[in-house]
Design a protein around this nucleic acid. Structure first.
Length: 643
DNA sequence: GTAGGGTTAG
């Protein structure tokens, strides 16, 4: 007893200095005994219920009262220091393990490795692993394999897996589960697919956790069909399975599929959770499905999820992108604690609506609050500047980003700045900026320059930008149309012909753009020349009527020039925006605003069409395209430069 | 009485 106390006091003197710094609240325990078992039981209970701080306090008390930790003590206490990510405490516990002669117990060693990996000390974990005398235990391998994968050292993990197989150590479901999350990047996908095969071969295909992991792997690599096939083959899906698929669709921009799956979930009476709602709200944001978004909000409120910060951010984003900036702002203002994502969502919302000054003010306020900006919030603020014509401010932000915050601007930042300079007519500067970029420019960067050439009618520079952009994105039809429009304005019929030929050669005929309109909680999707909608007949009738009324009021565009439709009168030339607007007029009451969402940029032809329609029909038309909102009322538009 | 695992937002 005295010997124990003496030994423990030595432990304590060093353990105390570290542990007291992390204790935030005191806990009282009644156990006063030198027998180890009751302490272990209490430690197990605390660790099981996630009370890690209390577990550490209890461990200290255990030493104070003279009880000696044994091999059963360490797994619990190591889990606590791992979960709290306390490497120093963990290292001290490692010393205790050695001193108390527990280092030959495989489960203590496994817990040690796990602790080191959670504290990002994989080299320490490897050292522990190397000292294991007979490395024939699956669990030891599993602990280190998943540790490597979670620390972005997938290849180390995979090598260990190979070693394991060479040595004839059996693997199990947990081994696969440790490896699959490392295959979520395209370069490792093939290994992930091998694991999928291995999984089926070993009869592990009914393990739900592995299936969930594999779905996530396919989703992250953009292989949605494979993910869906796997999903459909799971007989008893768990909530995580549904969430993996829903978030997957949302991340890959397949918003309609998200809502479809969500409906299916409701029908099967699977209770959604916060993760489900985040995915659904993101889909609502993309589709402008505000009514469904509102229903989700009610569910969040009634299910006591209102204080979930992820959901609040998703709601701000949803309302802002559905055009309801006021509602987004209320939620934002009422948030007691705002994260960087909350600020980014609201700043982006104002930027999209052309309210650049408010966006910039909010950004400055955010900085004053002490929040460290990242690359994404700079994209929001730069794009806000470009939409509102705040050239000087935008250039300052690019500089600030590099100098003050040491962030490396990516192509997404440069495309905003090229757009910014381009709109201001500083095309040469924009071109020089592209040439001086430290990253390789992508299609969006050259595309921004091409758009600026359209506004300022610079044919020669447009040709240069176009050649670059089609090299990078040969199938993006928007750029061909843009160049063709530039030639049209320059009366260059040869140029128009060249672009058309190029498009024909590359078989780029169909407009890939969609437009959506939300009506009575349902989102109606239209493609150019769509004849699939049940109300098609009425829609086209309405369009003809609109064309007639509009023509009576003259066909002049924003520059006062006659707009001539260059396309022969074929059905494909009926743009999706027009169809959505005709549908909206047919199905909404007079006085309601009309929000149409176009997945690509709104084209000049449609821009002037909506403008003219708004002159004859007393409604507010809002068209949201890939980057911003265009508000049309009484024949005027809030942003006239549609490119 | 002991160790290893899955899904979230801008």
């Amino acid at each position: 007893m005295t010997r124990h106390l003496h030994k423990n006091t030595r432990f304590l003197s060093r353990f105390n200095t570290n542990i007291t710094t992390i204790i935030t609240k005191s806990a009282s325990f009644t156990t006063i005994t030198t027998t180890t078992t009751p302490w272990n039981t209490q430690l197990r209970d605390l660790s099981k219920h996630g009370q890690y701080y209390n577990a550490l306090i209890l461990y200290r008390q255990m030493l104070q009262f003279g009880a000696t930790p044994n091999a059963f003590t360490f797994p619990f206490i190591l889990k606590s220091s791992a979960s709290l990510s306390l490497p120093t405490t963990g290292k001290q516990l490692h010393c205790h393990v050695i001193k108390l002669g527990c280092k030959s117990e495989p489960f203590v060693l496994t817990a040690l490795m796990c602790m080191y990996c959670k504290c990002k000390l994989t080299e320490h974990a490897q050292k522990v692993f190397d000292e294991i005398p007979h490395r024939n235990l699956t669990v030891c391998y599993n602990a280190l394999i998943s540790g490597y994968v979670q620390n972005d050292k997938f290849l180390n993990g995979f090598c260990l897996f190979s070693e394991m197989r060479l040595r004839g150590v059996e693997f199990n479901a947990v081994t696969i589960l440790g490896l699959v999350p490392g295959c979520t990047v395209p370069e490792h996908l093939w290994l992930g697919m091998c694991l999928h095969c291995l999984n089926v071969k070993c009869g592990l295909e009914n393990d739900l956790a592995i299936a969930n992991c594999l779905i996530t792997m396919y989703v992250r690599c953009g292989l949605m069909e494979l993910a869906r096939r796997l999903f459909d083959h799971i007989p008893e899906k768990g909530l995580i399975t549904w969430n993996a698929m829903i978030s997957g669709y949302a991340q890959n921009g397949l918003a309609a599929e998200v809502l479809e799956l969500y409906r299916e979930m409701e029908l099967l009476q699977v209770d959604p959770d916060a993760v489900t709602f985040v995915g659904v709200l993101s889909a609502c944001a993309n589709l402008g499905a505000q009514k469904i978004g509102f229903e989700v909000e009610q569910k969040i409120r009634s299910n006591c999820m209102w204080f979930n910060i992820f959901l609040k951010n998703a709601l701000i984003n949803m309302y802002a992108r559905c055009g309801n900036l006021a509602k987004a702002r209320i939620i934002f203002d009422e948030m007691p604690e705002k994260t960087l994502v909350s600020w980014t969502a609201i700043i982006g919302g104002y930027g999209m609506h052309g309210l650049g000054n408010t966006a910039v003010e909010l950004f400055d306020k955010m900085i004053k609050t002490g929040i460290q900006p990242d690359g994404t919030v700079f994209v929001s603020v730069l794009s806000a500047c470009s939409h509102a014509g705040l050239t000087k401010k935008g250039l300052n932000y690019l500089d600030l980003m590099k100098r003050e915050y040491g962030l490396k601007p990516g192509t997404e930042h440069y495309s905003c700045v090229v757009d910014l300079l381009g709109r201001a007519g500083r095309l040469e500067e924009a071109r020089k900026l592209i040439e001086s970029m430290e990253v390789e420019p992508d299609g969006a960067v050259w595309g921004a320059l091409l758009g600026a050439c359209k506004i300022h009618k610079k044919v020669e520079l447009a040709e240069l930008a176009f050649n670059k952009v089609v090299e990078l994105e040969p199938t993006n039809i928007g750029y061909y149309v843009l160049l063709s429009n530039i030639y049209t304005e320059a009366n260059d019929s040869e140029g128009i012909l060249r672009v058309r030929l190029m498009m024909r050669e590359r078989k780029l005929k169909k407009d890939p753009g969609y437009s959506y309109f939300e009506c009575k909680g349902k989102t109606h999707l239209f493609v150019a020349g769509d004849i699939g909608h049940p109300q098609t007949k009425d829609i086209y009738k309405m369009l003809n009527r609109l064309e007639d009324t509009v023509n009576e009021h003259g066909r002049a565009d924003k520059n006062g020039q006659e707009v001539i439709n260059q396309e022969p009168p074929n059905i494909m030339s009926v743009h999706s925006e027009r169809l959505a607007i005709a549908f909206a007029l047919l199905n909404t009451e007079i006085g309601t605003d009309i929000l149409v969402i176009k997945n690509l940029r709104i084209c000049g032809d449609c821009h002037s069409f909506v403008k003219r329609v708004s002159k004859t029909v007393d409604r507010l038309f809002v068209v949201r395209d890939a980057t911003r909102f265009h508000h049309f009322r009484n024949g005027t538009c809030s942003c006239n430069d549609y490119w």
